[in-house]
Design a protein around this nucleic acid. Structure first.
Lengths: 206, 206
DNA sequence: GTCTATATGGGGATAGAC
DNA sequence: GTCTATCCCCATATAGAC
């Protein structure tokens, strides 16, 4: 035979292995859409095109998958937000900087990362041990926001009578809540971010 | 015997029956705390102090329980909000009215109703058929808010360039998100409502 | 109104073949 | 890296006793 030397014929099964990343990708989407308790390893395997038992080659347990997704989710949105802020000119004022940070966070959730949106959706549903594993990453991201807000407040650009932590919880909570109703096929995440920043900066009163 | 006429001795088993409401009460709390998929009928029965099979005397299925909780949850917060607005004087301005509505919604979630908080937490996790059953109640509450905001905007008290529906989604989303971090044993829902209203009305800029 | 007992299916997880 | 086969447990739901 002409190709007797080969032990594997690439033309036979061109379907590449799913791999660890493939499992995580489909799992993140399923968790985001259906929640933690409703997504079984069998559902994940089905969506990934493999069998349930195969998942254990990559992960030791279901919660190990969830932990990886939660960490990656925070990391992704944290990076987007940090870079968006760093890109602003040194002379930029609070409105410009906050608009950039808000837009980065919102686009990470709505456009970019299934991991980030999965984190927001299922964090409150997972076992305590899984939450604990994700806490360091979350705290780091929260600190990034608190430092930014405190810096702007110190420069006198934000109201001094508003507690930074409370405002951060309020702002991030409002942005995260868009996941409950935003439809990516109909909406524009960038325009939405602009509208949110506008209200948070200037308020609703005439 | 002295009490031969009684068929039941109240001193024997003073433990009153749990009943339909008892099941709903504990189920609402469990769903709020752990999410839809993670709460089994066994858990509900345990928390209610009865056996799992007994639940089927009151409900035909798990989802029938969930539907009842979701509907009651919307109804409770809707009533609180409507009454809070109705109690305001005819001469009250937008800031006073909106503060009252915001406070009512937030207190319903954080202080008053396990049903309302359960609704917010699990709506995105339940099967489509359950969501559909809850939609009419949700739409009615959303319309209550949209009508209020449109009325204030028409009077010129709210900015004309902000879309009412978008602002309602933003506001309710921000209030609902407090469930993720608010600790009733440490926080004051009324003070929180005031701080939220302040930022939404006046913005964060100095 | 609640109990016990049970039917049936799906859950996470493991072992060993390929 | 994925498969098949399987273990054991817990899920929803039903039937009939009390």
């Amino acid at each position: 035979m002409a190709d007797a030397g080969r032990t594997k014929k690439k033309t036979e099964t061109p379907r590449s292995p799913v791999g660890r990343k493939g499992v995580l990708d489909v799992a993140a989407r399923l968790f985001r859409d259906q929640g933690y308790g409703s997504v079984s390893l069998r559902k994940i395997a089905d969506a990934a095109g493999i069998k349930a038992g195969s998942i254990y080659y990559h992960f030791g347990s279901k919660d190990e998958i969830v932990e990886a997704i939660l960490d990656e989710g925070i990391w992704a949105v944290h990076e987007k937000m940090r870079r968006a802020v760093a890109e602003q000119a040194d002379t930029a004022g609070a409105p410009v900087i906050l608009r950039a940070a808000i837009s980065a966070h919102l686009r990470a959730l709505l456009d970019v990362s299934d991991y980030s949106s999965a984190n927001v959706r299922i964090f409150g549903q997972v076992p305590q041990s899984v939450r604990d594993a994700n806490l360091p990453a979350r705290r780091a991201y929260e600190t990034e926001w608190d430092d930014l807000l405190a810096r702007l407040q110190k420069k006198g650009e934000l109201r001094a009578d508003v507690d930074v932590r409370r405002f951060r919880l309020m702002l991030i909570g409002a942005l995260n809540a868009t996941l409950e109703w935003f439809d990516p096929s109909r909406g524009d995440a960038e325009a939405l971010a602009s509208a949110y920043a506008d209200v948070f900066l200037n308020g609703m009163l005439e």
